[in-house]
Structures are given as C-alpha cells and as structure tokens.
Design a protein around this nucleic acid. Sequence first.
DNA 1: ACAAAAGTGTTAACTTTACACCCATGT
DNA 2: ACATGGGTGTAAAGTTAACACTTTTGT
Lengths: 216, 216
Amino acid sequence: MNTKFPIQNLSIVFTVDKGKLKVLLLKRKEDPYKGYWVMPTKFLEKEETFFENTQKIIFDFFKIEHIFMESWKAFSFPMEQQRYLQTTVICYMDEATREYMTKETENYELEWFDVQSLPKMAFNHEEILLDALSYVRIELNHISVLKVLYPSDFTIPELQTLYEQMNETTMDRRNFRKKMLSLDILEDTLETTMVSTGRPAKLYKFKEEISIDKIF
Amino acid sequence: MNTKFPIQNLSIVFTVDKGKLKVLLLKRKEDPYKGYWVMPTKFLEKEETFFENTQKIIFDFFKIEHIFMESWKAFSFPMEQQRYLQTTVICYMDEATREYMTKETENYELEWFDVQSLPKMAFNHEEILLDALSYVRIELNHISVLKVLYPSDFTIPELQTLYEQMNETTMDRRNFRKKMLSLDILEDTLETTMVSTGRPAKLYKFKEEISIDKIF
DNA sequence: ACAAAAGTGTTAACTTTACACCCATGT
DNA sequence: ACATGGGTGTAAAGTTAACACTTTTGT
C-alpha cells in the first residue's frame, strides 16, 4: 500500500498596477502566525485538479470564472515537521478583473502587495514567493505573459516600469519606446490615459498575431 | 479530514552526449504498455522528500550519491481516471558519470534516448517529457546549467551542436566560437579530443568564477 | 591522396546606447 | 506660471551576421 499525503495547494496570484507587479495575500486570523500574511491555500479534494482547486479559491474571493493559471513547482518536506505536500499554481490577473473584484471582496482581509515591499509572511510563504518571483521575473519578458496581464490598453511607460523592476535595471525612455515600436507588436489605440498630472500617455494594445515572444 | 493521495514522483534525467541532449528511459516489462518506454517513477514514502525519492532511483540504477536536481511542475488529474498525483524532478547528469554507470547497469532495460527521436512512450510520459523539454531548452542557454552538464572538458563545436538543437537554429562556426570566447567564461585546457576522424578539437572548461548567466 | 571535422579574420548590417529639449495636462 | 510625466531624433559604439580557405587527423 502506498503512503498517502494531504496536498496543500498554494495559489500565487499576480497582477500589475501602474507598472508594478503585485501579489495577492491574505491576513491570517488565527494562530500560529496570527496577523501575518499568506498566499491563499486549500487542501486538494478528491476528484479535483490543482487548477480546479485554485479556481475555487479565486471564485470565492472574486466571483470570476476564468483566470490564466499554470502549475509550478511542488514542495516536499521531511514529513515529521510538515505532514503534507505543497503544490503551487501561478495565476496572472489582468487589471480590469482586479479592479472589478476589489469592490466585491471587502469582507476578506485580502490585499495586493507590491512584490518589492512584502509584509511579514507566515510559514515558508516568503521563501516560496521569492522563488516564484525569480521565475516570474523571466516570464514577464515574454509577450505571451504580458498579453495575459494586458488583454487591453496599456501605456509604454507602464510597460517600462514593469520591465525595469523585473530586470532590476533602468532604461532611457526614448530607447525603450523605440525598441517596443520596432518589434511590431503594438497597435496604437489612438486613446490616451486620463491621469492626475503630467502629459497623458498614449494607449497601446498588443496586436492579435505576434510571431515573436521575447521583448529583450 | 483532508483527502489523501498517493504521490507518484517522476524523475526526468537528462545528459549530453556529443552535443545531443539525451533522456533516460526505462522499458516497461508489464502490461499495460508492455514494451513501451517510461521515465523512472517511484511512489513517495513517508518522511521522504522528492529529492530523496529521486536520489534513491538514481542510486538504484547508477550507484551514485550526488546528482543535480530541481523540482519541476506537478500534475493532477481528475481523480477517477488516475488515483494519484504526479510530481516531477528534473536531473542533469554529466558525461563522465553517465559513462561510468552505463557499464554498471546492464541488467536494467535502461536507455538514453536522443530527445529528437523518442520511442513509443507509455501513459502520459511523452506529453510530460515534451513539456519538460520546452522548459529545459531555455535552461540550457544558462551557464549555470551547462556547468552541471560539463563539470570538466568540452569542445566548442559540441556546445554549438547543443545550442543549435535546443534553439532550433544553425549558426556559423566562426561566429559561435567568437561569441563564446568573447564572453570570458572559457578556459583553454590545452588538450584536444582524440576523435575517430577529422581534426581534433580543442578542449575548454568553464572558468570558476563567472558573473553572467546567459549565453545568448 | 582523400575524407572528415576544426580552426581562423574581415567587413557590412544591424542593434543598442547616450544624450536634451519640447509638449500636454492639472493645480 | 509651475510642476509633473510623456513624447521625440540623431550619432557613436557595440554586436551580430555573412562569408571561404587552411589545418589536423584517420583511412
């Protein structure tokens, strides 16, 4: 007879907000680690896949049915300390969906944290998140992933902010724009942002058919 | 009470041979899928991590204690069809270790297959392997991974063959060599290969301290 | 001597970097 | 009018791509 394990499935949900990568965290209401933050988890049930499991969490919080997900690493521990396995799913949520749902979820202690200023996290969640970030940082140089985060309009400076944060660099504004336009992946929407201060930025969207996948 | 699952841990073992990426497969001796090939699997035991589990497989086959491993995706299925979860570990084995152990394992139906000409595979293993390959292809552009595969000598044409296969491209020999040398990552061993025909190639090794990680 | 595979240098095309001023909006 | 952030062009430096003949070994 094979040993059986409970599976804790952890959902790492990312979004972007004004060019900053944000992660969805939940405040623990009980000990241990009361008041610390965690990524949402749920034990896997019978006849349920990881994606279905994550989908249920997302639905509970946000009442949405569709989100882009991918299975990522699993973690195992010496079984005396921790009596379950941990699997992880990475999700990317677009801005419109995130904004829609923040209004619907005021009864949860949920918050989107900038990945550059994380709060005190419980268990091994910070370690896992940092590991996931080193993966996601690279993914965000791929147009296929950016298209998930930006199904509609975005500005070039916004993309540049994201790019700079993910690659820990800075770039000249002219050069970044020139590069983006030269890739032949952007479509000018002829709209501009309505922003509080400064000149409004032009809004672009990704073209339908794009043959390349890397921006740098 | 949480539902518990048996965990099937699958070990995807890669090596290189003359610039070709090879994967370790095992021929099934029983139905279903008798005679088809699989990647080695083992159910996870109590108080055992994925790495320990994979280590046991590797030790069984090759009597070696150390191999580079990393946890990769987990797979889940609707639980009626398949009553376990599948986790995966990716391993990279260097040439010297592989050559040492092929002699020791003649009693197993093990074979290293070129990833470009895979045999008939059982269950979902081909699907998983192709997915893993799309991951590994990118990893092999990183010096950190190449150093695992080549802890000692290799030739530049060998590296070029690997690069070309992984990136589905061809490159001019002069340009490839020039690029490799310009990266300041190689050390000339002053040795050459003893090869059956043609001019012997110079043997290089990676420098100890390398600050960059991407070759292209 | 012939076949097989490796080693080598130069130039043109392309890509990336550096750099400073003006423009559109809100207060 | 001033503060804020966005948009724009050109030239130099660096990188990549194209290209053919010679060298070293085994048979």
